[in-house]
Each structure stands twice: as structure tokens, then as C-alpha cells.
Amino acid sequence: MARRSQQADQELTEVLNQLWRLDTNRLSLGADYIISIQGRAAYVAQGSNYARDRARAPLFTYVNEDKLKSIETYAHFINLLDNYEVSTGVSETVTSEELKENHLFIDSLMETEVMKCAHKYLVGKRQSSSDPEKFKKQLYDIWFRLYHRDRGGGEDSCGFEHVFVGETKFGQEIMGLHNWVQFYLQEKHGHVDYKGYKARGNKDTPDEDDHVLNLQFSWKGLVKPVGGSFIGVSPEFEVALFTIVFLMSTEKMTSVVVKVDEYLLELVVYRHGRSIGTSFPKLLSSNNRDL
């Protein structure tokens, strides 16, 4: 297990801040979305199906869906969210249409300045080929290549499904679901119930304009005690960021502390062979506060 010190990794911080500045498809609070932080979530044990609700209203008060659907990467991303069996242990079947959707999503990512920057950085670090087609294949293997997550099952999971869509383990535990677009859409349809924010201490609460939150929520009759998620950022930003962290380490688990914009984050990536097992941010502090 590789866990770097709490000192921000300076080089990684620099490239991730480049990605942040290039993320022109990041949504703006107020104009594009509104969230309601509400109360601090209570302690819940892993595997529980009950949590006190410290947030009577949804997390997302408003999201400009027309804008989401007008941006190519978001539109292709949303098309992928209904392509998976939620429960692990159930083999995934990828249809020709779903395969096409996967490749359209990767193609759209490659058109963004965020992914071009990530690709250039990885080429410089000799972690990726300069050939865009070979890099696309590498991205596909990292995020969409199916693998066995649970013993006894078939190829039941992939990095994209786990991180962005979410999974349940034997109907007992929520795994993944670290993406704000999926969270919003699931919440809109009544499948997700936001229970409140999670904090490291009692000193402060997150702000509505924070782009990273630690959340507690219920989904599929289960409770996720805490899950870290970026808010408002584009799909290309998350894919680029976690691809870089994944490729810059060969360890089973990598944890790196970086300062992105005003946020001190712990970025966690678990490896599953040549693919991502899971990846998520943990908010350590924001606006120089100890959360």
C-alpha cells in the first residue's frame, strides 16, 4: 500500500491545477446548479440500512440539465449510466451499442483541453504513448475493461461502473458512486436520499460553493456512511485526474495529498490489475479551514 505524506505532492499538484484551470466545462454555482448542504450526518456503521436524516431536502436544488446535455462529454457520459448491472456477482454484457457509446465518450474526452493536457503529461512521464489511438485504448482498458470483482461471479464490474455509476455488494453494501451527475440524476428519480455532509471535526461546515464534498446517502435500500465526490466538475476532469494518479503508481492502493485550487484533498486510487478498482477524493480542508 502506498500512502504518501500529508505534504502535498508538488509536481502532481501543479499538473492537477493545470487541469482545474483548463476545465471550462465545470459548472458554475448559482447559474448552472444549486446545492443545499444542510446538516452534519450522524455515524453509521458500514453495511447499515438506516441512517438519521440530517438533510430533509435533496442535496441538489437545481441543475441546468439543458446545459449538461449541450456539452458533448456530459451528454456521452449520461448515455453510459444505464449500461450496467448494479449488483456485483452478476455478469455484465456489453452490447454493440454500449461498446459504441463507450468509444464515443472516450473520443469526446480526447477533444477537451483537459484530456490533452493529461495525455501530454503522461507521455512526458513515459506512462502513455504519444499516439492518440493507443492512448484511447489505454483509457478504455483502465476504465471500461470488464473484470471479476466478486469471487464466483463472471466479469461483473469495471472502473467506470464502480466509480461513476455505483454498485451494490450482495445487497449489503454500496460501493463506489462518487460522481455528482449520477448522484443528481438518482436523487431526481427518488433513488438516492442525501442524509447530510460528513466532516473531520466540529470546527466548520462545508460551503455551498465547495467543489468537493464528503457525503452520506442511501441508495438501493442501503446507506453509504461516507463517500467523497467532486461537485460540478466535468467528466473529463475526473477521468484525467484519476488516470494520472493510477498510472503514476504501480501499488495496489495509492493515496496522495494534493492542493487543487482552494482544496486540500486526499486522492485515493485502488488498482485492479491494469484497471481502476475504485478512485475518489477525500476533502481534507477547504478555504484553509480544518473540516
Results as ranks from 00 to 15, higher is better:
residue 219 W to C: 08
residue 222 L to S: 03
residue 201 G to C: 12
residue 228 G to N: 06
residue 229 S to E: 03
residue 205 T to H: 11
residue 207 D to Q: 12
residue 225 P to I: 06
residue 226 V to I: 08
residue 211 H to G: 11
residue 228 G to C: 02
residue 201 G to N: 14
residue 200 R to H: 12
residue 199 A to G: 05
residue 235 P to H: 05
residue 221 G to W: 03
residue 199 A to P: 00
residue 208 E to Y: 14
residue 199 A to M: 07
residue 201 G to F: 03
residue 229 S to V: 02
residue 199 A to E: 06
residue 212 V to P: 09
residue 202 N to M: 03
residue 199 A to V: 04
residue 231 I to V: 15
residue 218 S to K: 14
residue 221 G to Y: 04
residue 221 G to A: 06
residue 211 H to F: 15
residue 229 S to F: 01
residue 208 E to C: 13
residue 223 V to Y: 08
residue 199 A to S: 14
residue 233 V to G: 07
residue 226 V to N: 08
residue 234 S to Q: 10
residue 213 L to H: 14
residue 224 K to Q: 11
residue 222 L to V: 02
residue 213 L to N: 11
residue 233 V to M: 13
residue 205 T to M: 12
residue 218 S to L: 14
residue 233 V to E: 12
residue 233 V to P: 07
residue 202 N to V: 01
residue 215 L to M: 15
residue 224 K to C: 08
residue 214 N to C: 00
residue 208 E to K: 15
residue 200 R to C: 00
residue 203 K to A: 07
residue 231 I to P: 08
residue 205 T to N: 11
residue 217 F to R: 02
residue 200 R to V: 00
residue 221 G to S: 05
residue 215 L to P: 01
residue 209 D to R: 15
residue 211 H to W: 13
residue 231 I to T: 11
residue 221 G to K: 05
residue 221 G to N: 11
residue 230 F to A: 05
residue 229 S to N: 08
residue 214 N to L: 04
residue 205 T to I: 12
residue 207 D to G: 13
residue 225 P to S: 11
residue 208 E to Q: 15
residue 225 P to A: 04
residue 209 D to G: 04
residue 214 N to W: 00
residue 223 V to C: 07
residue 236 E to N: 11
residue 219 W to K: 10
residue 216 Q to A: 13
residue 206 P to G: 09
residue 234 S to H: 07
residue 210 D to F: 10
residue 212 V to W: 06
residue 199 A to C: 07
residue 201 G to P: 00
residue 211 H to T: 13
residue 206 P to T: 01
residue 200 R to I: 01
residue 204 D to K: 05
residue 227 G to V: 00
residue 234 S to R: 09
residue 217 F to N: 06
residue 219 W to Q: 09
residue 221 G to T: 06
residue 219 W to L: 12
residue 223 V to A: 09
residue 227 G to E: 02
residue 220 K to V: 00
residue 205 T to V: 12
residue 226 V to Q: 12
residue 210 D to A: 09
residue 210 D to Q: 10
residue 201 G to L: 02
residue 205 T to C: 07
residue 224 K to Y: 04
residue 236 E to Y: 06
residue 211 H to S: 11
residue 220 K to C: 05
residue 230 F to Q: 11
residue 222 L to A: 02
residue 236 E to S: 15
residue 223 V to W: 07
residue 201 G to Q: 00
residue 233 V to N: 13
residue 227 G to L: 01
residue 212 V to T: 12
residue 203 K to I: 01
residue 232 G to S: 15
residue 206 P to C: 08
residue 225 P to C: 03
residue 233 V to D: 07
residue 232 G to I: 11
residue 207 D to L: 15
residue 222 L to M: 05
residue 227 G to N: 02
